[in-house]
Design a protein around this nucleic acid. Structure first.
Lengths: 199, 199
DNA sequence: AATCGTCTGGGACAAACGACCCAGAACCGC
DNA sequence: GCGGTTCTGGGTCGTTTGTCCCAGACGATT
């Protein structure tokens, strides 16, 4: 087995855990399974991490960072509001289809955090991050297109989170990309009707 | 320990598993934990069920039956389309708040079924059931209000599933009932704009 | 009251898990 | 080349899990 510095091993193990959870669910992510996926000796696990919880903690941070770059990278500006919304939502969607595992892991993470009291707050922070990126993206579009949002941005942000999340979960189940894009496009049009001329 | 016929024990165990999964997640639902929750001896488990998988299978059937009655009981008719949609969505929402565990179990079930190949198709059937009930409810409203839906009903049904599912998951995380109702009401108004006079 | 099928009680079991340990191989700066 | 650090290999430990077993207590039927 190749000798690999601990720092790099950590990343390998996190990435391996990411794949395992994404493909086989949270329960499959045992220390042995993760090490096998990473091609690492079992001893490497507790050499790199104090405990399994530490791996999970790092994985959570990693997943949320990836999410932030993916969803916040959004805000694609176009001449009209509808087109901007559609392009932005489609931009997000591209990142989902490009790496379905990321979303699978995030939903698995949410689910797991909801039941485990020791992870209380993790799911909340996750969704606060969702709302925050949705809010900034909506504001960028409003400024870029020279409009303002009629309802409070918080409310619109929640709608965005609800729809993107719902679309993603539905797609994870049946992998119907056409239906997913239909819903997102329809949502873009509906959202656009909530724009008003800037004050 | 009271002597209880096997048939009744089965129901007790299923109900106990339901509570455990809803409150503590899928991983907590061990045979011992479920029996303890049901107040049953451990031996009762494998006397009533051939395996844990059989319990899970029965629990899935039970959850989907509950879901069907809850979501399909919908279709509250009002003079206008908007009001009907809003009342129907709120009717569904009442059942969510009345029994949050049901939804928690269903999302946990989806998540679990996505990873486990031996449960392949369970999540798919679950979402097909969602779509079916959404479709019939939308059709009922269309007939009741004397309108027709401009886009294909399948597409609208998916939107309904996406939004209700998304709202539910978001609420399970932060329990913000006001925000949930806001989104549902806004969605009702948006959906109503997709109605056209009957042919 | 004797009998028979039903259910309980208290174990037992192998497997898999997280965690730990330590001798020694590989690598580094010197 | 040498010494010390870094990582690996292969094991062990206690716990928890699903599953199984069986003697015996119970309840209904006769």
């Amino acid at each position: 087995m190749a000798r690999i510095p601990a720092r790099e091993r950590r990343h390998q193990l996190v990435a391996a855990a990411f794949r395992v959870i994404g493909e086989e669910g949270f329960a499959a992510a045992t220390t042995r399974r993760v090490c096998a996926e990473a091609g690492a000796p079992l001893a490497a696990f507790h050499y790199c991490f104090a405990s399994k919880a530490e791996l999970l903690s790092e994985l959570t941070a990693h997943a949320m960072a990836e999410l932030e770059t993916a969803r916040a990278g959004g805000a694609v500006l176009r001449p009209t509001v509808v087109e901007s919304l559609r392009a932005t939502l489609r931009g997000y969607w591209d990142t989902v289809e490009a790496d379905p595992n990321r979303e699978a892991v995030l939903t698995a993470l949410t689910q797991h955090a909801l039941g485990d009291p020791s992870l209380a707050g993790v799911a909340q922070r996750q969704y606060e991050a969702y709302h925050r990126t949705a809010r900034t993206t909506l504001t960028e579009i409003a400024e870029g297109c020279g409009i303002r949002w009629r309802p409070p941005v918080e409310q619109l942000a929640r709608m965005v989170v609800v729809v993107t999340d719902g679309v993603t979960v539905a797609w994870l189940v049946d992998r119907d990309s056409t239906a997913a894009l239909n819903v997102l496009d329809a949502f873009a049009e509906q959202l656009a009707t909530l724009a008003a001329p800037a004050t």
